[in-house]
């Protein structure tokens, strides 16, 4: 298995909803095409970790942060925002919590958006994904005319349209009906597997993720210590100790 994403000694401090908060990732690897659920109570830093993995926010410190063969820490340190944007455009698909669709584009336009940004137009793939996800009839509509579940599926199609190597989903089931939640999780896993993309899903519900067939990484949370800072640790045994 090839390592797609590798983190060592990553640290990020931020002010949470109430108390100061620190996120530590001593070691974390993700292989190409691998699916994983990150579980933790709300406010445990799942979204923060996902944002760092989406190359959208920099870590405070990291011994190692490589993604798709590139040294991300170096990009951040050198302020190469366009290089990071390029990497986001080419290699990463994102499913935001509430879909995050552009209201002024049609469903088709929204799905094709990632293709356009990555400069990989492929209308056949847009239609194929729409078929797969059961939103073919909605392609010409605006997002406002869609149900919440349909919007979430459009968002999944958009995250996959440009053939990324990593899909990040932040609580994709938070805004949908519980019955729909299982279907969304299963759909994400199936589509990513079909596309050969690695998948990271942040969820507050590890049981549901496990039921959908995801390996689950639960975060360890530590109550505020003497310094008053709550800690949250995501640790995963390295994939290739030998290497």
């Amino acid at each position: 298995m090839t390592v797609l994403l590798s983190l060592r000694g990553l640290h990020k401090a931020y002010r949470g909803d109430a108390a100061p908060f620190a996120l530590d990732v001593p070691a974390f690897d993700l292989a190409e095409g691998e699916a994983l659920a990150l579980a933790g109570p709300s406010g445990s830093g799942k979204s923060t970790l996902l944002m760092m993995l989406a190359l959208a926010t920099p870590p405070d410190a990291a011994e190692e942060f490589t993604f798709a063969g590139q040294d991300i820490t170096r990009h951040w340190r050198a302020g190469r925002r366009d290089a990071l944007a390029e990497l986001r455009a080419r290699c990463i698909g994102v499913v935001p919590q509430t879909g995050g669709l552009l209201p002024f584009l049609t469903v088709e336009g929204n799905i094709a958006l990632t293709q356009r940004i990555a400069d990989r137009p492929d209308a056949a793939r847009v239609r194929a994904l729409a078929d797969e996800l059961g939103i073919r009839a909605q392609l010409g509509k605006r997002p406002a005319a869609l149900s919440v579940g349909q919007r979430q599926r459009v968002s999944i199609a958009r995250a996959l349209a440009h053939r990324p190597s990593l899909v990040l989903a932040d609580e994709p089931t938070a805004s949908v009906h519980p019955e729909l939640a299982d279907a969304v999780l299963a759909l994400l896993k199936r589509e990513c597997a079909a596309a050969g993309a690695a998948l990271l899903v942040a969820t507050h519900d590890p049981d549901r993720a496990a039921r959908a067939g995801y390996p689950v990484l639960v975060c360890e949370t530590h109550a505020p210590g003497a310094d008053g800072i709550a800690r949250s640790v995501f640790a995963r045994a390295p994939l290739a100790e030998a290497a």
């Binding site: 989406a54 390029e86 986001r88 994102v94 940004i117 990555a118």
Partner: peptide
Amino acid sequence: DLALLSLLGLKRR
């Protein structure tokens, strides 16, 4: 919308 486009990889310019 602009933040979303940025997240999807649109460059600053």
